[in-house]
Amino acid sequence: METVTASLLALIHKITGGLLVMAGFVVLPMPIPLGLIMIALGLAMLAPYFSAVQALVRTIRRKSPVVNDAMVKFKQKCPRVIQITIEKTNPDMTPPMVED
């Protein structure tokens, strides 16, 4: 029963994260930065499940020390799944090489 619940939760995260990213791009031109917030939340929800999203977040953190510092600062206040994602997207960490 736990695996079904975990799979369902992962599916809900993926759908919600994808919808947030898409909706964020739609409202991005608005003067209020709501689109950026929605995109950031969507990427945070997708990052635990997709290595490409982890690489994107890692690049954003590498290019923006303000974003990186904020993630490090609030890491301990976040749920464990978000803490793991913050660790996985550490810009100082070299991602593992995939062998073919």
Rank of each mutant, 00 (worst) to 15 (best):
N90D: 15
D100I: 04
F25K: 09
I37W: 09
D92Y: 12
T16R: 09
M45T: 03
Q54G: 04
V98K: 06
G35L: 13
V81D: 00
I12C: 10
K73E: 07
A6Q: 14
G17A: 03
E2Q: 12
A52L: 07
R61P: 03
L20I: 07
M1H: 13
V72R: 05
L46W: 03
I32F: 14
A55P: 00
G35Q: 09
P65D: 09
K75S: 01
N68T: 02
D92S: 11
P65R: 07
P79R: 02
K63M: 13
L20K: 04
L8D: 12
G42K: 06
L11F: 14
P65T: 00
M22G: 06
I12G: 01
K73R: 05
K14V: 11
A47V: 03
P96E: 05
A6T: 01
V57S: 04
K88I: 02
M97K: 15
A55L: 01
V66W: 04
E2G: 12
V26C: 03
K75Q: 02
D92P: 03
T3E: 14
D92F: 06
M1V: 06
Q83S: 08
A44F: 01
G17L: 10
D100R: 10
K63W: 08
T59E: 08
I15D: 02
P33V: 13
G42D: 01
N90G: 09
E87M: 00
S7R: 15
T3W: 12
N68Y: 14
H13N: 14
S64R: 03
S7K: 14
Q54D: 10
M93P: 00
M93A: 14
L11A: 13
A44S: 05
V26F: 06
A52S: 08
L36M: 15
K88V: 01
G18V: 09
V67H: 02
I39S: 04
M97I: 12
I37M: 10
S51R: 05
P79H: 05
V67G: 02
R80H: 07
V98G: 03
I84L: 12
P96D: 12
R58N: 10
D69A: 14
K73L: 09
V66G: 04
M30T: 15
I84A: 10
I39R: 11
M22R: 13
Q54R: 13
K63N: 13
F25L: 05
K88Q: 14
R62G: 02
L41E: 02
P48I: 08
P79Y: 05
H13G: 02
A23Q: 09
V4I: 12
A55E: 15
P96T: 05
I84C: 02
M1N: 05
P29M: 09
V53P: 02
I12F: 11
S64A: 07
A70W: 15
A23R: 13
M30N: 13
T59Y: 05
R58D: 03
P95M: 15
V67Y: 03
S64F: 06
L46S: 03
T5G: 01
M71W: 09
I32M: 12
K88A: 11
D69E: 15
E87I: 08
P31T: 14
C78H: 03
V57M: 10
R80A: 11
Q54W: 03
N90Y: 11
P79E: 00
M93G: 08
S51N: 09
K73I: 00
V66E: 14
V53F: 00
V67W: 01
L9N: 07
